[in-house]
Design a protein around this nucleic acid. Structure first.
Lengths: 338, 338
DNA sequence: GCCTGGCACTCACGACCGGGGAGTGCCAGT
DNA sequence: ACTGGCACTCCCCGGTCGTGAGTGCCAGGC
């Protein structure tokens, strides 16, 4: 049962608080925003908003501060996504265009996001689950030792050593390489296990053990590398908001070092659209006074990975969301080109 | 002109200060360490040490604190390297033994160092400059597009796309691959430019452009990848000593994000033995109240890369140096095995 | 019924103050 | 050359107090 004006008051409180970093009072509100009512009226609205849990006061007779719930309402109903200006867009594109390989793309993206949002940036490497195999290479390093190299369409390269149960001749290796490639090149990872299933049958019995070892390693690589890697940056920005939370910076840093936590964090984001997790909505308690803005990105229609930023709950949501969305788009483009 | 006892006093001051994190006074010193003299005598020594710039007092009539110069003398002449206990050694070895590939080795090393020293850990990827080529692979992705994959003896894999000036047939690719490998496999990177110099001459004129492109890319890769990558971890440990430097943590984080700075930092370390850079000895001003302990590591005799930790100048130097040295040794072993 | 101005009340914050204590420098004595 | 004594310095800690922003509530006006 929130009146239109009350929502307006909440919006004003969020905006002012984000700007000033100080609890905002009724008088200041009426002055800065032209709500056409008196402070007293605003006070009534504030009392109501507080009853509903959207705002809170740090101490009796201090100004009001938005709660997690208040921010939630703000992002859901009151705030749009602030689009980037065209100079900004150009800067993003220019910066990302200079990348030479996948590591560089991810590295640049992290730096860009961190700089743009002045927050901690997290970028997941493009996932292999939805990727396709570009090429598989087999090299014999020693009579009974092979190296398996897997190249994906996102430009990622993975290599594994394979110890063979029996020596294998180069011709067989070449044969296996050719068959493997004709079998799975261009195919999605998910399809690979099915496709290689019958492969050993075309070979001599003595080589089958080796073939199986190779295939086992290949499948293992596909699974293992589905556990994503990620890159983070901009941790120095944590100090930008630490005077509010001198105690909180520690658990945040700790959480950021645990890849598992971060992957889960990004993973929670729904595939389509942007996800904003505010304060206690984050499962990890070290992040209970931070918000996470994340979005999927990809070279095609589907998202192949996620990226996002971690900042204080008191953040400029529209601006941050705009930056995150813009960066995600351009990274997608870059990946599609390469 | 420092008497034996004065050195002893300095050592005691450093040890106490590192332990208590508080300026240490003459009385406390005589109590905790059995210097067989009275506080007054110690005061005289302290005055002399202060005149020589080894210690300082934060305020008049507070205790003394070691200066950078004091720490320097301490590590140079007063402190040994504290060896790890054998359970610790075993733990290190066990932890590192579980690594599956190079990334994993480096990742584990960073975590281990950070945990062991409770400081920020920095580990450089094994350098390619002294590495040897294990294998070069060439794949044709499209009629006029090749992929070059370089595999090193340290298990590192680099790939590059090569756009060919003219289409090239698979046979030629295979031929080139074979010749390249027989030419440079097992050779040091530094030798490669000389070795491949005459390679194009064995091929048809029409393919020479492509061959040159491939070789150019190969050499470029060797150079580019000599610019090292590195991994850092344990930044959460910064908060462990930040109550001393609440202002300083920011520039430290910033310095840590600049790979260039870090590489230079590690690079300064001499190849043999451990290097300790104390406070202002570090070129980067953001690190002027931190010390860096670094050492080279490698699979053979020579160091292929460096690793180290960054912590407050007030650190347990013997213990830290012991941990760093031990980790470097075991990483070297692991690399040699793989 | 909703909005407004007025009013008394609450508290965080910063300034000020004063005692206690750890530490120092110096000096005279052994 | 070392020691004990002594006066001095100054940080730190706790308590007090004034100020000001902000609040809740109430009575009155549109």
């Amino acid at each position: 049962m929130l009146g239109e004006r009350r929502l307006e008051v909440l919006r004003a409180i969020v905006q002012d608080y984000v700007g000033t970093e100080e609890p905002v009072g009724s008088k200041a509100l009426t002055e800065r925003h032209n709500l056409q009512v008196s402070p007293a009226t605003v006070r009534n609205d504030m009392a109501a908003l507080e009853d509903d849990g959207f705002i809170a006061q740090p101490h009796t007779s201090a100004g009001r501060v938005p709660t997690d719930k208040g921010y939630r309402l703000f992002v859901d109903r009151l705030a749009g996504v602030k689009p980037m200006t065209s100079p900004e867009r150009r800067a993003i594109q220019n910066f990302l265009d200079g990348a030479v390989d996948l590591d560089d793309v991810v590295g640049r993206t992290v730096r860009l996001l961190a700089q743009l949002t002045r927050k901690v940036a997290v970028v997941q490497y493009p996932s292999l689950t939805r990727s396709t195999v570009r090429h598989v290479e087999l090299l014999s390093l020693a009579p009974a030792r092979l190296m398996l190299v897997l190249i994906t369409d996102t430009g990622r390269v993975e290599q594994r050593l394979v110890d063979c149960p029996a020596p294998i001749v180069d011709n067989t290796v070449a044969d296996l390489r050719a068959r493997l490639n004709s079998c799975i090149a261009g195919q999605r990872f998910a399809e690979v296990p099915r496709l290689v299933q019958d492969l050993p049958e075309g070979f001599d019995a003595e080589d089958r053990g080796t073939i199986s070892a190779v295939l086992a390693t290949l499948l293992e690589t596909l699974v293992e590398e589905t556990e994503e890697r990620l890159m983070i940056g901009g941790t120095a920005n944590l100090t930008r908001f630490d005077h509010d939370f001198p105690l909180t910076i520690r658990p945040v840093l700790e959480a950021l070092e645990e890849q598992v936590v971060l992957l889960k964090l990004l993973g929670e984001a729904t595939d389509s659209g942007m996800t904003v997790r505010i304060g206690h909505e984050n499962a990890h308690e070290g992040l209970s006074s931070t918000s996470v803005v994340s979005v999927g990105y990809g070279s095609g229609e589907e998202a192949v990975a996620k990226l996002g930023v971690v900042g204080p709950t008191r953040m400029d949501y529209p601006g941050t969301m705009g930056a995150v969305r813009a960066v995600a788009r351009y990274v997608g483009q870059i990946l599609a080109e390469s």
